[in-house]
Design a protein around this nucleic acid. Structure first.
Lengths: 330, 330
DNA sequence: CTGAAAGCGCTAACAC
DNA sequence: GTGTTAGCGCTTTCAG
C-alpha cells in the first residue's frame, strides 16, 4: 500500500505538501495540488487512519454501548447510528454491556486505548464517576434515556411521562372503564416516568387502585406473567397500558391464551414503537418513540462535539406519537 | 495518560524492556520484570492500541458486515460475535450493507485504512473480485451462508437443504396431506437450498404441483402476500413450510385474518429459529439454526486466522434442529 | 538479559 | 507556497 511518501515522491513534492492537500489545510499552489491529486490517483493512495490517529488522538470511530443488541429496541437505534456515522465519515464499534456497570467500565477503558473519538451510551448504567472519568480523559459522549446528571451530559430521550398520559387517555377515549398498567424495572428512568404518567392520569378515577399496577421486567415473559397476575386480581379490567412493547406482546399472548378477545374485552396499548408490534395479531397500538431519529440525533450531536462544535449539555426530548392499531380498535 | 516511556523511566529500564514484558517476548530477568510490572501498576499504564496498530498493521478489532441489523436474524448473530471477540480481546465494528455490493466494497476500503484485523461477512454480496482483493491486501475473513467459491473461503452455514427436508417430513408426520412452500429470493443461497429441499421431499407425492411454491421476499409482508396468493390457489392446503421465520410470521398473520385455524386447518413451519417465533400466538414451529453458535464460530475462526493458526478454507456446516411448537401441534 | 535506534505513516510547527 | 523536522507510542532488529 502506498504511503504519503510515495505520493510525495511521484508528485515531486514534499510530504507536507501532500498532507496539506489531503487535509485542505494551508495554502497549496493550484498546479502542485493537481500534481499531488494525480499522484494520489495513480497510486490509489489512501491515508492510514491509524497513523493519523496516532498523531491526532482521534480515530474517526465512535462507539455505541448498549445493554443487548438482541433486545428489539436496539437494532433500529444502531442502524440509525451507523447510517449517520458512515455518512459523516465515521465507523462504529458496538458493545453489549448487559446493563452491568463493570462491563461498561471495561469498555470505556478499551475504547480509550483505541483513541475512540466518542461514545454513545444507550440506556445504560453510567454513573457520576464514569462521567467524570470520561470528562477527564476528554472523550465526548452522548447518553440515551438515562444520565446521572442533567448538567454535564448531553442526553436524548423521548417524552415518556407525556406518552404514558397519551396512552391512558387513548384507552379512555375508546371507552375503557378500568385501566391497568404493567410497568418496567424502576431503576430504569423510562419505566419510572411511564408509571408516573399512568398514575397521574388515573389516580382520581373512582376505579383506581394501586393493585392495578403490576411489575414486569421489560421482557416478553415479564409481560406474560404480569398479565396473568392482573387477570387474577382484576378480571374486570378492560384496558391495559403496558410499559413497553415487548411486555405488551407478552401480555397479549397471555390474554389470547386465556381466550380473552383483544381488543373487545381488553384493549392493549404498548410503548416504544418496535417492529414487533406489527408482527403479532392483532397488531398492537403503541406510543411510538422516534427510535431512528433518536439514534440519528445521538450520532449527529456526538460527531458535532467531536469536531469541536459547541453542543449544549442538556436534555433533548423528542416527541412520541400514538400509533393506533387493532389492539385498541373495538 | 502514561506512555511506555514513563513506565521505563519509573522502572529504571529501557522502553524495549518494558515492551518485552508487555508482550511476553524475549527474555526478561524476573526481578526487572517485577519492577516494570510495579511501574505499570502505579502509573495505571495501558498500551495504546493505535500506536501498536501502526507498527503491527493489526488493531485487535474485527468488523462484522451484515445486510441490516434490523433484520431479526442478525442481532443474535452480532451478539455472539461481540461476545467471543470481547473475550478474546477484540473489539467489533459493525456495518450495514443492505446487500449492496458497492456499500460493502466501500466498507472494505475504509476498514483497510483502519488496519482492521479481520472481517466477518454475513449473508452478503461478496464476489470473486472482493475475495481476491481481500487476499491481496491480506485481510483475513470469514463468510456466513454465501461465498463465491468454496476453495479459498472459510464459510459457515447450517444445513438448509436437510433442514427443509426435516420440515416437510415433520408436516407429513403430523398428518398434513398437501404441503405448500413459501420461498425466499433465489439469489440467496439459503433460500435456494431450502426450496430444493422442499421440492425433493414432495416431488413424488401425488398431490404435488409447482404452483404450491410461492415466492416471497424473506420479509414479513412477503409472507403475508404469499399466503394470500396460496390460499387463493390452493384453499385445501393443510401445511406450509415457509422459507424463513419472518415470512412464516407474515403467513400466520394472513391465515389468522382469514379466520383459518392454525394449526388445526393449516400447520406452519418456519426456518431460522429467531425469537420472534415465540412472540406470536400460536408460537411457531421452526427449523432452528444455531444462530449464536454460528456467530461464535465465525468470530473464533476469524481470530484464529488473524493470530496465525491455520484455518481450513472450507465450509463449516452446522446442524439445524426441529423445534416443535403449537403451530404444528394439531 | 538489556539498551539504542530505526522505523510504522502521518501531522504540525517552524523555517525558507 | 513549500520543505524540514520533530514527534505521536510502540515493536523490533541488532549490538552489547
Amino acid at each position: 500500500m502506498a504511503t504519503i511518501r510515495d505520493v510525495a515522491a511521484l508528485a515531486g513534492v514534499s510530504i507536507s505538501t501532500v498532507s496539506r492537500v489531503l487535509n485542505k489545510s494551508g495554502y497549496v499552489n493550484a498546479e502542485t495540488e493537481k500534481e499531488v491529486l494525480k499522484a494520489i490517483q495513480t497510486l490509489k493512495y489512501e491515508p492510514s487512519d491509524v497513523a493519523r490517529g496516532l498523531t491526532n488522538k482521534k480515530t474517526k470511530t465512535i462507539a455505541l454501548i448498549l445493554p443487548d443488541i438482541v433486545n428489539p429496541f436496539f437494532p433500529a437505534l444502531s442502524r440509525a447510528v451507523e447510517d449517520v456515522a458512515r455518512t459523516l465519515g465515521y465507523t462504529v464499534i458496538f458493545g453489549n454491556s448487559d446493563g452491568q456497570a463493570n462491563k461498561e467500565k471495561a469498555y470505556i477503558n478499551i475504547l480509550k486505548q483505541k483513541y475512540i473519538s466518542g461514545i454513545i451510551f444507550a440506556s445504560h448504567n453510567l454513573n457520576r464517576d464514569d462521567v467524570e472519568y470520561l470528562q477527564k480523559i476528554d472523550i465526548p459522549f452522548v447518553v440515551l434515556d438515562r444520565a446521572p446528571s442533567r448538567e454535564n451530559c448531553t442526553v436524548i430521550r423521548s417524552k415518556n411521562f407525556e406518552g404514558a398520559k397519551i396512552a391512558v387517555q387513548h384507552l379512555l377515549d375508546i371507552g375503557c372503564k378500568k385501566i391497568a398498567h404493567i410497568y418496567g424495572p424502576q431503576e430504569i428512568n423510562t419505566a419510572k416516568d411511564r408509571l408516573m404518567g399512568y398514575e397521574e392520569s388515573v389516580k382520581n378515577s373512582n376505579w383506581y387502585s394501586p393493585t392495578l399496577m403490576v411489575p414486569g421486567n421489560f421482557k416478553l415473559d415479564g409481560g406474560m406473567n404480569a398479565a396473568r397476575v392482573l387477570m387474577e386480581r382484576h378480571p374486570d379490567v378492560d384496558g391495559i397500558f403496558v410499559g413497553n412493547d415487548l411486555m405488551a406482546v407478552g401480555a397479549l399472548k397471555t390474554l389470547l391464551r386465556l381466550g380473552i378477545n383483544v381488543p373487545k374485552q381488553i384493549a392493549i396499548c404498548g410503548f416504544d414503537g418496535i417492529n414487533l408490534t406489527e408482527a403479532v395479531e392483532p397488531e398492537l397500538t403503541t406510543i411510538a418513540q422516534p427510535i431512528y431519529e433518536m439514534g440519528a440525533l445521538a450520532a449527529e450531536l456526538l460527531i458535532m462535539k467531536i469536531e469541536g462544535s459547541r453542543v449544549e449539555n442538556r436534555i433533548y426530548e423528542l416527541e412520541v406519537k400514538l400509533v393506533q392499531r387493532d389492539s385498541t380498535r373495538k
